[in-house]
Design a protein around this nucleic acid. Structure first.
Lengths: 339, 339
DNA sequence: TTGTAGGCGTTATCAA
DNA sequence: TTGATAACGCCTACAA
């Protein structure tokens, strides 16, 4: 097809000229937004075909005042948790006709600027808890940008989608108490995020049983971070009977540290995770954890955001998705209290 | 700050008016693209501040004729492989001042349309092998859109970034032969993708040793897919001594199937994976696999794409990243041939 | 049923 | 050093 017309870059004007009509007619014919005579439409479509015309997204967006795109901000994509949530988000957003822009804040210096740039590219966005400073979030809200926050404490006037954390943490703690453990350590910490909620639940149960609530040991939410935490928690003199970890990756790291210290899991120390990532099931020992619906989390966020963008809903909503305690072998042989 | 001005939506005209200058001057002052008197600049910046003006991304893009954004198309984000690659890609793209749009083709009907839409939003894009039909790729190339393909056979005139597959597959096969295994099965198949390259390497070594090359059994590249394949391969009468899997997730599924069939891994059957995802190390038994630099793959793609976009390079390049055989326990007790 | 013309928000050229 | 003004590509009242 060696004709002079480059397939790219044809504008609506060229189409109009070729079809012998005005650009308004081309637009109408293409968008079905007004009456067009059958024969005229044919001519237009033919010209469109011949020039392989695709309306410039920029032009459309500028004229319509919308991007037909959503953003999502997360701290990191390493590890399955964020990837799964993203997958659920993209799937729904795409179904709703919106492209997805991603932004990872991991190790970024000028997060603020990056987020601002993102704001200028989308009709609405999702932000994970512990990703962007409150001040920046407030700024975004002030611009009127539809916003859904994920996995964090409620925020005034903002949509939030979270997994249930407190009650499942209580269930987890209760289960461990059923094993007879009396000394605990907590690995990982965040601020106003989902992990904080988990510790709230754990501590409530522990103190309810007269057990001193331990301070969580901060660490990165990675296997490496867990490993470092594990060395600290298990290498010292007063080793806890059980280590409750902020998530599965941390738990895997703690197990690694335990092995290296010559400790048996769960014989010498019980270890639990959170999320139920794929590895949790295949790990040795298999991880006792709390399963949260990662993909659904993303999907729900996408739907909520859509409601906000279309104006189908204006009042902020707060969704809490239910979770499930998954007992495997890393917390020890099954106690009698078995449910 | 209860003034009437909404922080959002201020245009360059309003800034200009407030500063008592023309929009051209505002633009120059902001972009440093021409001479502006110090006092004038001050006034402009003050107005910008007061109106919290941010240039409309749409306006900028339209005027500059560029999006400052890249796309990436992948089949699925479930499992660590694509997530890791994406992470590397986003990190570099973001550093280069480009936003990242993602598109998953998983289970999508109108992939073609979605990809076309993406094309209209970016300055360049990355496409994983086995994601988009060749015809569509050709169409994209024809538009002049900078394109980098990932993890697939070379394509004429298109940048490709891949991990080394053939040689490492040969090394893997040789290692298994060193164990003394003589009957094999291959789990997973694709078309012109990286898995095909792996089978090429494996078969070359096997036939070189007079061993009949098995046909790969197609399956989804997930744990579930591997499980199904495992049931088929191991449940029948003539069980192979070793199952070489297309990737780690498939291998994990095969292990699951083996366990369920009462088979010991590696006692009754050796199993190997590919990628070296986190789970490979923690699995029981730990997975013998080939490690490929997933993040680097994404990073390299982002750099290559940048060269193409900026025009720093015009000739297509083909990068092959090196991989590493990781021997763990899933292929059996270490043979004497130990390197 | 179709065409004209203004608007969306920038950038950049060319005079002044 | 500054200001008009023409692109950029499209949508959409409003007129005809």
């Amino acid at each position: 097809m060696p004709n002079g017309d480059e397939g790219q870059g044809a504008t609506i004007y060229e189409v109009a000229q070729r079809a012998g009509v005005s650009i308004a007619t081309v637009s109408r014919a293409l968008r079905g937004t007004g009456p067009v005579a059958a024969r005229t439409r044919e001519r237009v479509l033919k010209a469109v075909e011949e020039l392989s015309f695709t309306p410039s997204r920029l032009g459309v967006s500028l004229a319509q005042g919308r991007h037909a795109a959503n953003g999502i901000v997360f701290p990191d994509l390493s590890g399955p948790y964020f990837a799964e949530v993203l997958l659920g988000y993209e799937e729904v957003a795409s179904e709703l006709g919106r492209s997805v822009l991603i932004l990872s804040t991991r190790g970024r210096a000028a997060v603020q600027d990056l987020v601002r740039d993102l704001v200028g590219r989308v009709d609405g966005m999702v932000i994970f808890g512990r990703t962007v400073e409150d001040a920046v979030v407030a700024e975004i809200v002030r611009t009127g940008m539809p916003l859904v926050m994920l996995a964090r404490d409620p925020v005034d006037g903002v949509d939030v989608v979270s997994s249930e954390n407190v009650e499942s943490a209580e269930a987890l703690a209760a289960h461990l108490l059923g094993h007879g453990y009396t000394t605990f350590a907590l690995a990982g910490a965040d601020d106003q995020g989902d992990v904080t909620q988990r510790w709230t639940g754990v501590r409530r149960v522990l103190t309810g049983h007269g057990i001193r609530s331990p301070e969580p040991l901060p660490c990165e939410f990675t296997v490496e971070g867990g490993y470092a935490a594990g060395r600290t928690l298990l290498g010292g003199g007063s080793r806890p009977e059980a280590v409750i970890c902020a998530d599965d990756q941390v738990a895997l790291g703690v197990i690694l540290a335990a092995e290296e210290l010559g400790l048996d899991v769960p014989g010498d120390v019980a270890i639990t995770g959170w999320d139920d990532i794929m590895t949790a099931r295949h790990a040795r020992p298999a991880l006792t954890t709390v399963r949260q619906p990662m993909r659904l989390l993303g999907a729900r966020a996408a739907w909520a955001l859509d409601e906000l963008i279309t104006g189908a809903r204006t009042a902020p909503s707060c969704q809490i998705l239910s979770t499930q305690l998954i007992v495997r072998s890393s917390c020890g042989p099954h106690p009698l209290e078995e449910k």
